[in-house]
């Protein structure tokens, strides 16, 4: 049994609802979920804040269906880019486990695929894709290990959105041939989530083959996670962690030891 991952759960300030969504996800069999913080610079007073501390959410994380481990929750940042100046790698960005961009124009899509240091590129699902997907940027993104994301919540909500989602997904599949595609929820309510096998089957409607559709909810998501980890660490080879509070203890020990040594010296003399 594969490990299923849902990389897009919309962040709400309502803690209760967030807990509900995560519990439902655990019940459905997702072993990892990511809470998505969206930043759109076109709206006023938007800035990238620090991610919410995850251990605050639950005292005890719900157990995943069919496994004995508790669910893993991550933080994800999505930057809506409509101008080139919007996306910058700052220290705040590095605090998130996964970084995604939502390019609005073809130029920015090209830049996102080729140069931006991101893990996921979102595809529009609520409107007709404003530009065509061209081969070179898509191939470049696949080579760099960047993933394309289709969220299915709009398709569930509304009939016209569903048409946009399916047509945009198909036009992406034409160029990417089903490689490096992630299907994620984007759920705002617990009832908007769907089971992983249902999503794998829904992938068939999006033009994915059976194997690719299953990979889109399991292995590709894992690859995106690992790609995100390489940003935090030195290319995934070395990982540095601050030790919690060794200095205070050591000082105490030294203080205790110090006089003892002196005492020993004085005794010797």
């Amino acid at each position: 049994m594969a490990v299923f991952i849902d990389l897009n759960i919309s962040y709400t300030a309502d803690k209760k609802r967030l807990q509900n969504i995560i519990e439902t996800a655990a019940h459905l069999g997702y072993s990892t979920v990511a809470i998505n913080h969206v930043v759109d610079f076109q709206q006023k007073k938007q800035e990238i804040g620090k991610p919410q501390c995850i251990s605050d959410l639950f005292e005890q994380f719900p157990i995943v269906q069919g496994k004995s481990r508790p669910i893993k929750v991550l933080n994800r940042l999505t930057v809506v880019v409509s101008e080139a100046s919007h996306f910058r790698t700052t220290n705040e960005v590095k605090l998130y486990d996964i970084v995604a961009v939502f390019p609005k124009t073809e130029k920015l899509f090209h830049a996102a695929c080729m140069t931006y240091d991101v893990d996921i590129i979102c595809i529009a699902v609520t409107e007709k894709q404003p530009f065509f997907f061209k081969r070179p940027p898509v191939n470049g993104a696949i080579e760099r290990g960047v993933f394309f994301e289709i969220s299915y919540v709009a398709a569930i909500k509304d009939s016209t959105m569903r048409r946009y989602t399916i047509s945009n997904a198909h036009s992406l599949m034409e160029t990417s041939k089903g490689k490096n595609v992630i299907v994620s929820s984007g759920a705002e309510k617990p009832l908007e989530l769907r089971g992983p096998y249902d999503i794998a089957n829904l992938g068939l409607l999006f033009g994915l083959s059976e194997g690719d559709a299953k990979a889109a909810v399991s292995t590709n998501c894992r690859a995106a996670l690992l790609h995100g980890e390489t940003r935090k660490t030195a290319l995934g080879i070395i990982h540095t962690v601050k030790k919690p509070q060794p200095t205070a203890k050591r000082q105490e020990e030294e203080e205790e030891e110090g006089p003892a040594v002196k005492r020993a010296k004085t005794e010797a003399m």
Binding site: I156, R194, N201, L204
Partner: peptide, 12 residues
């Protein structure tokens, strides 16, 4: 059955 199955997620 795949036709039927792929329609199931759209039930709200």
């Amino acid at each position: 059955y795949r036709l039927l199955w792929s329609a199931l997620p759209f039930i709200t």
